[in-house]
Nucleic acid binder design. Structure first.
Lengths: 358, 358
DNA sequence: CGCGCCTTCTACATCGATGTAGAGTGGCGC
DNA sequence: GCGCCACTCTACATCGATGTAGAAGGCGCG
């Protein structure tokens, strides 16, 4: 280590010249080729250290036809669920020697389509894509010629590997949790009227199933529409439901942001949670363990989703099994009971899940 | 559009063959070179569309020596502040034709150093780096030979452009806000004992200044240490302070996560906010507008930080002014008053109380 | 008419690495 | 002594684009 830090310059040629070998030998050393005399290897390594040489990734990419980068397309990082998902994907990718390039679609249909055809695909070896707007009608556009793994529940049987959770079942369990606590007038926040695909539709379906199994009617007045699943819309929808005068003793927010928004609206009106109204969310973002009250929610197995997606993508990239039919992986979920449904007796988390830092 | 979607194959050679021109002419068309006969241009463009040709970025990168990618190194995306910052940086970069590659350092010193020397630097044209562990003693390592912009307040006068806010002043204003409300026993959460650089030190310094200007003593018992600025540590520190029996009528969380954790702990103990204790945070993450109560905080001008950083980096990359001395940009801040200090009269994103059911 | 200039396009070298083919050495079995 | 294999290394072509130099044709100007 001495002449290092020269920036652009140093190439294999210079290393080769200094070590007195051919450039291919340098390449072989760098890539751990087996048949190299120890003495030669040492000389090359010394030259590399001396010159501060680093492989030029662009050149390697060109030659190898791979970049070692995978794309991750999500709506927005400012939505905690996607930020936490991105965190997990980055960790999983890193563990496998991959780098992640994030693209934000802003839940805009056109931008979601761009992702599928964009320039960027040449920068990456594959894509993990979580669409919010595209649906089965876009099957054609999804028929891309590069490795892709889809996340979420908007597209089933599509032309790609797919990782998702059992939304219907999870929503049923969430609703059942409220029913088990004796709640009977359970409102939903975040429904998308008329939609038949996507998280909203599936979760509402699970909600209906639970009610029906319990022999309870499904009251349309309890189903609150909310296009965007943000805190703000959750609060607005909660208020609309309250203003409507309909009787409510529990709320199922179809994601945590909506539920937290609802919590906010309830707090503003001095309505006791869970005394008067119990609230459950969906996603288990870190914030739910720290809201007041803490929020009961459905944990979708974020880590599992991330590692599974990266593994599937990597398998496609490496074509371990060419022509392997597309698979669909359903991940596990779990109900995390907290104060917003169980009251003060709920175990209040003192420490956040996962996320290890020193 | 017809034969498209072939994946790997199509190169300029094929386009050139189809259009009956040289490959350089195709390149010229793609790059908007001026002197091309309209008829030729059309033929080439038709061929490009026909074959679904897309430039191979790796090849272009190799030739041009630039990748169009900038790195963004942050501690963790699961920390809302950094997720929102990443969101802003991605948007700003996109507007300038750049792509962002995110690297998580997990606030681990070694990983922060890796970022400065790692392989990845060859993938990117420059780096926006927000260190949490490195400090002035690492000036040597920061002396990198690629364009870099530093964020945050750990390093001043370092060998790079630097974007930061006026932490001392902002913390002074936050403390003043509490003083203006008549609070006199203001606790701090998130101090780092013994540190003289970094957000913690600077914000505590601002806190001290405000107290001193008001002629109040600085009581060490009110200064709560918290290494990690997470919700969990905020809650723990709050509890420790409460248990200590020291008199407290306000809390200054050195970031929002700490303040939200404190809010959580106060709620658990049924302590009224702001009735008994007022709370102010720092960062203005989205969550603060929806917590219960909503959290007063200091908005650091995230968008401004992001766009400034990207602009500075781009200027370095393009070497518009070679040898230009490193600049330091101080961004604006603003106190956002909400319920946690102002009480119910604070403008809440809600609606006046109305009829309530069951 | 000759010269230079503008326009349009092409041929070729080049960016920095890796794959392929093969040269050269030495050891081993028969 | 011959053939074969294992080891070690090299020369060269190649990935797909872009920069350079210059050719070819047409036009204006003195």
């Amino acid at each position: 280590m001495s002449t290092a830090k020269r920036g652009s310059a140093v190439t294999m040629h210079e290393v080769a010249a200094r070590a007195g070998v051919s450039i291919k030998t340098v390449s072989n050393v760098v890539n751990g080729y087996q048949y190299i005399r120890p003495a030669t290897k040492e000389r090359v390594e010394a030259a590399i250290a001396d010159l501060g040489y680093q492989v030029n990734i662009s050149a390697r990419n060109l030659r190898r036809g791979r970049t070692g980068i995978i794309g991750l397309a999500v709506p927005e990082l400012s939505l905690p669920y996607f930020a936490e998902l991105a965190d997990s994907v980055i960790r999983a990718a890193e563990a496998r020697g991959l780098t992640v390039l994030i693209e934000q679609t802003g839940s805009v249909r056109e931008r979601e389509l761009d992702v599928l055809s964009g320039q960027r695909r040449h920068l990456t070896d594959g894509l993990i894509f979580s669409p919010l707007e595209l649906g089965p009608q876009d099957a054609e556009a999804l028929h891309v010629d590069f490795p892709m793994v889809l996340l979420g529940e908007r597209i089933f049987g599509g032309p790609a590997d797919h990782v998702t959770m059992n939304n219907v079942e999870a929503a049923r369990a969430a609703t059942q949790h409220l029913l088990d606590l004796g709640r009977r007038r359970i409102a939903v926040i975040g429904a998308h009227e008329g939609e038949t695909v996507g998280s909203a539709a599936l979760r509402v379906q699970g909600y209906r199933q639970a009610l029906e199994e319990a022999g309870l009617p499904v009251d349309p007045a309890l189903i609150g529409e909310a296009g965007l699943w943000h805190r703000a819309t959750g609060a607005e929808t909660m208020e609309r439901l309250l203003d409507s005068g309909v009787e409510i003793d529990a709320v199922f927010g179809l994601n945590d942001a909506l539920a937290l928004g609802a919590l906010h609206a309830l707090h503003a009106r001095r309505i006791d949670v869970p005394g008067q109204i119990a609230v459950i969310g969906f996603d288990d973002i870190e914030e739910t363990a720290y809201s007041s009250p803490t929020l009961t929610t459905v944990a979708p197995g974020r880590e599992q989703i991330a590692t599974t997606a990266v593994d599937l993508l990597l398998a496609r990239i490496e074509e371990l099994e060419p022509g392997k039919p597309f698979v669909q992986v359903i991940t596990d979920f779990e109900i995390i009971g907290r104060e917003s449904t169980l009251g003060e007796r709920a175990p209040v988390a003192a420490v956040p899940p996962a996320s290890q830092s020193a």
